[in-house]
């Protein structure tokens, strides 16, 4: 029987939101739902409540830190044995690093960053993904690929509650005996505690109009009220005001949040490519002719230094009521 295998990432004993999105899509297909989770605590995850039929876990500390060689060898071996029709994973840093290697091992196709997904009852996949950082989109066509690996971008699929719990079979997965050439020396946690730009529901981004690095405090204040993540244009990254991890655009991150607030961002073609998939776009710029207004839902011509603090106050009132 055709199956959909979901690579479920988790933290603190819970599925990540992306995993819940994928599990919802897997159930919707009507096919057998398999799930794979790697790392300590994997076994205790609520697979049954999520309607999973078969669970594969490596519930041990060996998998608590991502080692590309170890993970790809383990996942390749499992997939080669299970031969699911479809593999779903979030387009996370881990999955983007691992699954191309798994796909090459299996001789099958992989598509990253997909934004739409339909799975047919015979295990075929229709998916679209942005190209040129979102300047256009294309449909993915898998060729001679008995297993189709689809990496979905966050916030693209609805989370639907499962109807009726299941009692899945649970199989332990062991790492194959491979001679590893990779040692994970350290994992240094980011200090922001904020969602990554690629996962954020709301992004507040600053451009050259913010004048200097210190002014990004205004964006952080606004972001704190909204639970948003702060982004930036290439110009301010190149100026050294903020790190490259904050860059949105064709040579930074492609994002599609529900709300994107661009402050002092003029809207170079590379930046627009990276953010125009956002649902609602707010542009605040002193230049009424800035290209960003062509992509915006709401526009304010004005001084960011005057407007941002007032906006923060307005949002505070809303959020607290």
């Amino acid at each position: 029987m055709a199956s959909v295998l979901v690579f479920t990432e988790f933290a603190d004993g819970k599925f990540k939101k992306g995993a819940l999105e994928l599990l919802s899509a897997a159930r919707k297909s009507g096919l057998k739902v398999q799930a794979l989770a790697l790392g300590s605590g994997a076994k205790a995850l609520p697979f049954g409540a999520e309607g999973v039929d078969e669970v594969f876990v490596a519930d041990n500390a060996q998998f608590d830190k991502y080692n590309p060689e170890l993970f790809s060898a383990t996942v390749s071996a499992l997939l080669a044995a299970q031969k699911p029709s479809v593999v779903l994973a979030s387009s996370s840093a881990l999955a983007r690093d691992m699954f191309p290697r798994v796909a090459a091992h299996m001789g099958v196709g992989v598509a990253s960053d997909c934004t739409t997904l339909e799975i047919s009852s015979d295990g075929n996949v229709t998916a679209r993904r942005p190209m040129y950082a979102g300047k256009c989109t294309a449909e993915v066509s898998f060729e001679n690929s008995p297993t189709k690996i689809v990496l979905m971008r966050a916030n693209q699929l609805p989370v639907v509650a499962a109807t009726g719990a299941k009692t899945p079979s649970v199989t332990d997965v062991a790492a194959p005996a491979t001679d590893l050439h990779t040692i994970i020396k350290d994992v240094v946690k980011g200090t922001s505690g904020k969602l990554d730009l690629t996962e954020a529901n709301i992004i507040v981004a600053g451009g050259r109009g913010m004048k200097d690095a210190a002014s990004f405090k205004l964006l952080e204040d606004l972001a704190d009220v909204l639970g948003a993540t702060v982004g930036a244009s290439r110009a301010v990254v190149d100026a050294g005001w903020v790190p490259h991890t904050m860059q949105v655009g064709q040579t930074g991150k492609t994002v599609a949040p529900t709300l994107y607030i661009a402050a002092g961002v003029s809207g170079a073609i590379q930046h627009l490519a990276g953010m125009s998939g956002s649902k609602v776009i707010v542009a605040i710029n002193k230049d009424a002719n800035a290209p960003i207004f062509q992509k915006a839902t709401y526009g304010i011509v004005g001084d960011v230094f005057e407007i941002l603090p007032k906006l923060t106050e307005e949002f505070k009132k809303l959020v607290h009521h």
Binding site: I184, V187, V188, T191, L195, D196
Partner: peptide
């Protein structure tokens, strides 16, 4: 990786 986290590999 995400959220400014860095993985150091040998």
């Amino acid at each position: 990786v995400e959220g400014g986290t860095r993985e150091i590999l040998e």
